[in-house]
Design a protein around this nucleic acid. Structure first.
Length: 655
DNA sequence: TCAGCATTTGC
DNA sequence: CAAATGCTG
């Protein structure tokens, strides 16, 4: 231990004092400087959306006041480079140690790795902890030591690990503050004036901050949890936990959630309360999905931008900004979809089921590029979470081995009657349909003219006709899939002939660009007759343009690459690795595919796949196991990214 | 009431 | 595809 100096506790998405291993470690080591660094530009195109920033602002204020009461204020820094800000804090406080908790999104993996390297090189002892998951991703493996590739297998294993998740740590009673007299805080600005107005309403429904998270958890466990299984299918059910934004910012620890829920589980099991037990299992499964999203992100750090199954890159997405806009505005002509999109717009919230409905519609009916939809969720959801969003969209798009089949289109009309049997949800969010009888509420295009008239609906002006018919969508989807397989075969052939040395980075890393500067023109159009509650917020919520960020990210990456080549002292030049691995992986993936024939359209969910080798000593990717079921298609994870887990592991915990 | 087949669902 | 659920006689 490097004695004397104080420790920096670097808060990120762990804005709580209870069960915070980094904080506890800092306190044990002596005096503490608590730091939060706001460097959103580091997130590139995933600059947090308006509502997400609103949450963060309040959560931080909450944390700051708690820390102050305990004796150490939160130092805040505005930065474009977290690592140099940390160095500044080191220099101005004389800190000798840094503690933080793990994150698993691709950007954090790289940044945190670099942090360790740079600060360690400066003689700072760096330690990091698991505060976000029940088990670290590298600890959950199948019988062969390989990562799981389906959720159910993963979760089964998590629930039967030989050791329980660690018990939550108690909150500190008092913190000894390090000397921050020469380390002033920057004022952090999270919202501009126009955003403030729109955000004002949020406070009515939500209370950010760790102690509120705690309350929400207690309320849920003692109340709606027992009904969770019964009501979870209803679009406007109040039975969800509403914990997701709290969990995203780490205001409450998943381990604590897990422990408390388990206590209930035991209780109800003893009482023979089967519905209760079932509810607990379902709720825990949703916690498990969150775990799995980190697991996938860790093992496949490209999952937020590339389909995990390689052939999907040949899918001919419909690049139609008009469709995209109609979807965002809730004007697709499918009531359940439109109601969902308007709720999202107005509140930053959407029931899980409805997320599936609208995103599935987006991918399967509109056939828009899934990353657009994912980005929109990122920008608008209060609980926007990169890993969870990526998992969800990949699942919907059928790009995961256990995801939905490509060629399955869910019909919003039928789903409407399933999730909103009485049409209440639709009527709430689509006032223009409010007077339509339930019989027609989920398919107004079939309603007889007199019925429509009586309800004051004029299809095509009042409320749109379906933007795309389901039958037409089916046909188009089949064609698209045929084309996808043809393209895939062609590319495979090209590679076999050696005419093309793989696809190279360019084609792969140039995903269909996100539309620029999408304005909600609708906002200028006066809302008809009865202004729905959703009308006002339409104004400000613009989708930021990605392209400018893309440029910046590329520049950054380029410069990082330069740095790390100059600086050969680094044990693992991770940035260089990332790029290199991507390219290698691509070629490798393509070759793997070429080794296998017999590509057929059906059967594509029953695919076998090759895991990213978790081999930390050898390079040999041949260790990747390949399991096949019933022959047939053997797609491959598009780029397997073995180096991440290796590098992560190889980093020693100093101190 | 229940086996046996059809349909739906599943992250 | 496999498991769960629903329907039929």
């Amino acid at each position: 231990m490097s004695g004397g100096g104080c420790s920096i506790v670097w808060f990120r998405r762990d804005l709580r004092i209870e069960d915070n291993p980094a904080l506890t470690a800092g306190m044990r080591a002596g005096a503490v400087v608590a730091v939060f660094i706001w460097a959103p530009e580091e997130e590139g195109q995933y600059y947090p959306g308006r509502v997400s920033r609103w949450w963060l602002k309040h959560s931080l204020a909450h944390l700051d006041s708690s820390l102050r009461n305990l004796g150490a204020p939160l130092i805040t820094k505005r930065s474009t480079d977290s690592v140099s800000s940390l160095l500044e804090v080191v220099n101005s406080t004389g800190a000798t140690q840094l503690f933080f908790n793990h994150l698993y999104d691709p950007l954090s993996l790289i940044r945190d790795h670099r942090t360790k390297e740079v600060l360690t090189a400066q003689g700072i002892a760096v330690r990091s902890f698991n505060a976000d998951l029940l088990y670290e991703p590298w600890d959950v493996n199948d019988a062969h030591g390989q990562p799981f590739t389906t959720f159910s297998a993963f979760w089964e294993r998590c629930l039967s690990m030989p050791y329980d998740p660690e018990a939550p740590l108690l909150p500190p009673k008092r913190i000894i503050a390090g000397d921050v007299s020469r380390c002033p805080s920057d004022t952090l600005v999270f919202e501009d004036e126009s955003e403030k107005a729109s955000n004002a309403l949020l406070a009515r429904a939500w209370s950010p901050g760790w102690s509120n998270a705690d309350k929400a958890l207690t309320t849920f466990i003692n109340g709606p949890l027992i009904e969770y299984s019964k009501n979870r299918r209803k679009a406007d059910s109040a039975t969800t936990s509403f914990l997701s934004p709290h969990l995203h910012f780490g205001e409450v620890s998943v381990k604590k959630v897990f422990h408390l829920v388990r206590i209930k589980q035991v209780l109800w099991a003893n009482e023979g309360n089967e519905a209760g037990e079932e509810s607990v299992n379902l709720f825990l499964k949703s916690i498990g999905l969150r775990e799995y999203s980190r697991y996938i992100s860790f093992n496949h750090p490209y999952s937020h931008e590339r389909p995990l199954l390689g052939h999907l890159k040949f899918f001919p997405w419909v690049v139609n900004e008009g469709y995209f806009k109609a979807w965002r505005q809730g004007r697709t002509g499918y009531p359940l979809v439109d109601a969902g999109m308007r709720e999202l717009w107005a509140t930053g919230w959407l029931h899980d089921r409805i997320r599936v409905v609208v995103s599935s519609f987006f991918v399967k009916v509109l056939q828009l590029p899934w990353r657009w939809g994912m980005k929109y969720f990122w920008d608008t959801l209060l609980d926007a979470d990169l890993e969870s969003d990526a998992l969800g969209w990949q699942y919907i798009s059928g790009t995961l081995p256990d995801g939905r089949e490509f060629d399955r289109i869910d019909n919003p009309q039928f789903e409407g009657y399933k999730f909103d049997p009485n049409g209440e949800y639709v009527r709430r969010w689509l006032p223009e349909l409010a007077r339509l009888p339930t019989e027609w509420i989920h398919h107004p295009w079939n309603a007889p003219e007199p019925v429509l008239q009586a309800a004051g609906i004029e299809l095509g002006s009042n409320y749109p006709l379906p933007i795309v018919g389901i039958d037409a969508a089916k046909v188009r989807l089949e064609e698209a899939l045929t084309e996808m397989w043809q393209q895939e075969a062609a590319s495979r052939a090209a590679i076999e002939n050696g005419t093309e040395e793989g696809l190279g980075d360019s084609s792969e890393s140039a995903p269909i660009a996100f539309p620029q500067d999408i304005q909600m023109e609708e906002s200028h159009e006066p809302v008809r007759n009865n202004p729905p509650p959703v009308a006002r917020p339409y104004e400000d919520q613009m989708v930021p343009s990605i392209t400018s960020f893309l440029v910046r990210v590329e520049e950054e990456e380029a410069s990082d690459l330069r740095n790390s080549t100059e600086d050969s002292r680094a044990e693992v030049p991770i940035n260089a690795n990332v790029q290199q691995t991507a390219r290698e992986a691509l070629n490798q993936g393509a070759l793997q595919q070429s080794a296998h024939r017999n590509t057929r359209l059906q059967n594509n969910t029953a695919m076998a796949l090759r895991n990213a080798p978790e081999d930390s000593t050898a390079e040999s990717s041949s260790t990747g196991s390949r399991r096949e079921r019933d022959g047939g298609v053997v797609p491959v994870w598009s780029p397997p990214a073995p180096s991440y887990s290796m590098n992560w592991r190889r980093l020693p915990q100093t101190g």
